[in-house]
Design a protein around this nucleic acid. Sequence first.
DNA 1: TATTTTACAGACTGATTAGTCGATCTTTGA
DNA 2: TCAAAGATCGACTAATCAGTCTGTAAAATA
Lengths: 185, 185
Amino acid sequence: MSKKNLLMATARKLFAKNGFYGTPTAKIAKQAEVSNGILFHYFPTKEHLIKAMYFDVKDRLFDYSLSQVYKGATLKESIYTLWLAAVEWYAENPEDYNFMLQFESSPYYRTETEMAHRHTQLTIELMEKGLDQGVFKTIQPFLLFQIMMKLVQTTVDYLQLNSELQEDFSFRNGLFEVAWDAVKK
Amino acid sequence: MSKKNLLMATARKLFAKNGFYGTPTAKIAKQAEVSNGILFHYFPTKEHLIKAMYFDVKDRLFDYSLSQVYKGATLKESIYTLWLAAVEWYAENPEDYNFMLQFESSPYYRTETEMAHRHTQLTIELMEKGLDQGVFKTIQPFLLFQIMMKLVQTTVDYLQLNSELQEDFSFRNGLFEVAWDAVKK
DNA sequence: TATTTTACAGACTGATTAGTCGATCTTTGA
DNA sequence: TCAAAGATCGACTAATCAGTCTGTAAAATA
């Protein structure tokens, strides 16, 4: 792993444990066993590091999601796959999840940041398709997307609190039906 | 207003603008026009201040909510009133909202903190009633509560982004139906 | 090969900040 | 009325931390 990625991975762990502000840059560098000079070589400021980490998480989530969808799926199947992929990803990668939570309620976050990403784009396109087909309530596609994603959050939060449900497929499926019923006409 | 409340109110404003960590205690005291000694007299640490603010917001939200419900309402009406009260409250008090968002994804927050509050208790009781009456999906009442509250969040977020909807009642009602459809059997 | 660019180290600093401390003033209750 | 308790002030400090700087080694490029 490149030092750049090593730094991001280490920062993810430390941020999850101590938060952005509870984690000095020096500690990140030390735990990654590199000099702190190199941290500022790759990331001019701590803020740059954090923003880079955000896009990194989104990218990896997107790649995973794409690997799960298959051609010829119906609309509901596609949305189900995407929704579930997000749940699985965050449940399996709690550091990523925790990071996103912190990031999205931090001063670094702006809606444009989120809107711009491929993962958001793809999901919104599916929402638009659903609207065309008349299966969804008449609600702006971005809001539809937000609703679905907030229920991903609820699911992952609950899974984190009740680890015995970790392998329980019927639980996740049940929660998907909640999300689906929320948006369907 | 007592200096204690004045400090909390000032902190709310500054936290909303600059975040917990971007706001030095000295700045809070200065803007509240009191000495910083008095801040630490009432709140032994910054963490104590922040936690006190959390319960303060919850208390005020709860009082407002109670003032809205009326006796003899049906279950759905009660839940509607409570749900809407939360939306209204947070929409009218963006500093409170912003504070809660930051708090709930900060290291200070634990689920027990939330579970313990009267507002949560009351809402959960309504969920249990709904389960008894068979109107809800078979899901633990706390999760039911979380689902409804996450959709409060989604609504308030969207309202903040689209201020022209601020007075649009049909928008809020539409979003309540989303929340209701999500949990109803 | 010679030269420029990039990767890396780690000591250092200037600014910031949570919390302390002792002094004074005000209120309360006996 | 007087002493104890609580409220308030603001100067001070010890620690922390983001980012700098200088120097070296390695890689790329010409």
